[in-house]
Design a protein around this nucleic acid. Structure first.
Lengths: 355, 355
DNA sequence: CTGAAAGCGCTTACAG
DNA sequence: CTGAAAGCGCTTACAG
C-alpha cells in the first residue's frame, strides 16, 4: 500500500528527465535504445505504470468506449458484450458499461459524457433527442447497435447504426413458411417502436404478399418472456382460427412461445404449429428447443461497429448505416412441406464426434 | 462538434473565478446560492459538464470499478453484471468491464491498473499471484465474486471474497436426494480448482456420509455445456450401474445434463434419474427444464460486494470473506420419495394470473 | 537523442 | 463567500 509511483520517481532512479520516461513508454517516440532499457528497468523495479487518467487529460483521448445496454436476459446481448469488449480490448480501448432502463437514459448519458468517452455504442434504448444533441454538441461519436435512429428524433442529424438486414431476414422466414404450405401465418412483434421488429415484420409481409397471403394474426410481446406468453395465449385462444405458423421477432420470445404452446396449449411443434425466431442465441440450439431461426452475425456486426466508431473518432462526420447479411438456420421447429424439402440441420451446438 | 467547454468558459460568462465554478459543481462546497444559480445557468447555456478525468487526476479517485469476467454463456453472470452495474451506478461509481480468458488475465490487470480504478471485482479467473501482488502494491481493493482465493497463491496476503454458503447448499441437495431414497448419487463437478465446485461437493458428501452413503459416480464438466454432455455420457455409459440422481455444480451444466439424458440416453427425468443444479438462472424456471436447484442470492451477494469494496476504499485493510445463505428451490426434476414429500413449486418465472 | 517548460481541466488549501 | 495559486501525472512542441 505504498504511495503511487510516478514518472518522476522513475526518472530519478534512472537518472533521466521525466520527459524521457514518458517517451520510453510511448511507442514510436525517439529514445536511445539503452536509455529506454534503463528506464524500463527502473520502472519495473519501482512497479511503475503510466497513469492513463493523466494521459487522457492531455491527449484528450480516454480510449474508453461507453456501452449502453438495458436488459441482459435476452441471451443475445451477453454474447454481444463479450465479443465487443474483447475486440475493443485488442484495439487498445476499454468499455465502460452502463445498464439503463429506458427512463433514466438521460441521466446515464450525462454520466457517460463526464467520463470523456471517445465514443458510445448504444445497444439498448432509442436515443432521446436531448441525448443525441448532447453527443453531437460534445462531438462524441455514437453508433447504434441493432437498432436505427427514429427519423425526426434527431433534429435533422442522423446517427450511425449497425444492424442485420432485418427485412431480408424476415423475408427469408416468410418464404420458408409460405413455401412450406403454411397458410395461417402469425407474427409476434417485439416493441412497436423498435426498428428491428418493424423491419422483420415488413420482410415477412413482403414474402406473404408475394405468395398471395396476408398476416393471419399478430401479437406484441415487448421482447419479454411473460408478455410473449400472454400474446401467444391470446393469438391461439380460438381453436377454430389458430395460426399454423408463428414467427417471433426474437429467439427469446420464440422460446417463450414454444414453452407456452407445448405446456399450456398442449400443441406439438412443428406438427400442429411451426415456430421461428430471430438471433440464433445459444439456447436455440439446445435439443429441447431446436429452434429454426435467423442468425444475426455478431462477429460482423461487432466489426462494423468498430470500423464506424474509429472512422468517426478519426474525424469522419458523415453518419453511416451498415446492415449485415443474416442467414436462415433451419432446425426442427418448422414443418417440412409435403413436396421435397427435407429438414436440413445447418448447425448443432456441439460436435458429437466423441462419446 | 465545438471545442470542449471548460470551467474557465463558464467562469467568464458568469463573471466569477474558475474556482467558483468548481465549487458550484461540488456538493457541500461553500458558494452563495445566487452565485451558484448564476453559474449553473451559464453552464447550461454553454453545455458545460465537469470533466471527470481531470477531477480524478486531482482527487485520486476515479470512481471507476474494474469488473473482470470470463465467459458470459452461463446466464448467471449476465444477471450479476446487470445487478452490480446498476447498484454501483447508484453509488456514483461506474464499471469498466474486462473480459478475460484465463490466459491473458495478467495483461488485463495491467490495463486495469493503468486506469486507476478504485477497486476491482473479479468474477472470473482465479487471481494469479503476480496480479495479486500488483494490486496490493498499488493499494487497490480487490473483491473476489463467487470464488475464494486459493491459499498460498497470495504470498500470505488474503483477498476479500463474496460467495454463497456453497457447502450448506451442497448439503441441502445431498439431504434432499438421500432423504428421498436415492442411493446412487452422482456429482458433476465444475473445474477441479474452483472453490465453488469443491465446496458444493464437500457439502454433498457431508450429507451422504450422514446418510451412510458415498458418491456413486463423479464427472467433471468444466462448467461447459459440451464438456458436461461428455461427462454425463461417460457416467451413464454402463446401464447396470447408472446413477439414480445427478447433482451438477451449476445450472448451466444441469441443463446440458437434462438435454443429454433425455435426448441421447432416452431417460426420463425425474422418473429414471433426478437432476439438481446450482444458481437458479432464469432458464431453470422454464417449463422445459423445471429444474430443482439451489438459488444463489445475487442481490445479497452484490450488496456484500459493494460493502466490502467501499470499506476497503475507505481504508479498511483487513480482508474479509462473506458467505451469503442460499436456498433450495424445489421444482420438477427430483423424484419425490414414496413417503410424504410432495413437490413444492417454490417459484415460477411468471405469474399466470392473467390470460 | 534529451531536457526544461507549458499546459490538459480540474480541486483545494490559503488568504482576504 | 470568493479568488489567486499550486499541483494532480502526464504529453509534446521547442531548443539544444
Amino acid at each position: 500500500m505504498k504511495a503511487k509511483v510516478t514518472a518522476h520517481d522513475v526518472a530519478r532512479l534512472a537518472e533521466v528527465s521525466q520527459s524521457a520516461v514518458s517517451r520510453a513508454f510511448t511507442p514510436g517516440a525517439s529514445v536511445a535504445p539503452d536509455t529506454r532499457e534503463r528506464i524500463h528497468t527502473a520502472a519495473r523495479q519501482l512497479g511503475y505504470r503510466p497513469n492513463a487518467i493523466a494521459r487522457s487529460l492531455i491527449t484528450r483521448r480516454s480510449r474508453i468506449i461507453g456501452l449502453v445496454m438495458s436488459y441482459l436476459e435476452n441471451q443475445f446481448y451477453p454474447v454481444v458484450i463479450e465479443r465487443l469488449c474483447q475486440a475493443l480490448q485488442q484495439d487498445g480501448y476499454h468499455v465502460l458499461l452502463f445498464i439503463s432502463e429506458t427512463e433514466d437514459a438521460d441521466n446515464v448519458l450525462k454520466d457517460i459524457l463526464q467520463y470523456q468517452v471517445d465514443g458510445i455504442v448504444m445497444a439498448s434504448t432509442t436515443l432521446s433527442s436531448a441525448l443525441a444533441n448532447d453527443c453531437i454538441h460534445a462531438g462524441i461519436p455514437v453508433v447504434l447497435f441493432n437498432r436505427v435512429a427514429q427519423i425526426g428524433t434527431l433534429g435533422g442529424y442522423s446517427t450511425s447504426s449497425v444492424t442485420s438486414q432485418n427485412r431480408d431476414g424476415g423475408r427469408l422466414v416468410g418464404e420458408l413458411l409460405a413455401g412450406n404450405g403454411h397458410r395461417r401465418i402469425a407474427w409476434l412483434a417485439g416493441a412497436e417502436n423498435a426498428s428491428t421488429s418493424r423491419e422483420r415484420e415488413a420482410g415477412l409481409c413482403d414474402a406473404l404478399s408475394a405468395a398471395g397471403l396476408q398476416l393471419h394474426a399478430r401479437g406484441v410481446g415487448h421482447y419479454d418472456f411473460a408478455e410473449a406468453r400472454r400474446a401467444v395465449l391470446a393469438m391461439f385462444r380460438d381453436p377454430a382460427s389458430r395460426p399454423d405458423a408463428l414467427f417471433c421477432a426474437n429467439d427469446h420470445m420464440a422460446i417463450a412461445a414454444l414453452e407456452t404452446l407445448r405446456t399450456e396449449l398442449g400443441m406439438r411443434v412443428p406438427h400442429d404449429v411451426s415456430v421461428v425466431g430471430f438471433d440464433n442465441v445459444p439456447q436455440a440450439a439446445w435439443p429441447s428447443f431446436d429452434l429454426t431461426t435467423v442468425q444475426q452475425n455478431v462477429e460482423q456486426m461487432v466489426d462494423a461497429t468498430r470500423t464506424l466508431l474509429f472512422q468517426q473518432i478519426g474525424g469522419e462526420v458523415m453518419a453511416r448505416s451498415v446492415a449485415v447479411p443474416c442467414v436462415l438456420v433451419e432446425r426442427g421447429t418448422v414443418r417440412a412441406s409435403g413436396v421435397a424439402r427435407r429438414p436440413i440441420q445447418n448447425e448443432t451446438h456441439e460436435t458429437p464426434e466423441t462419446t
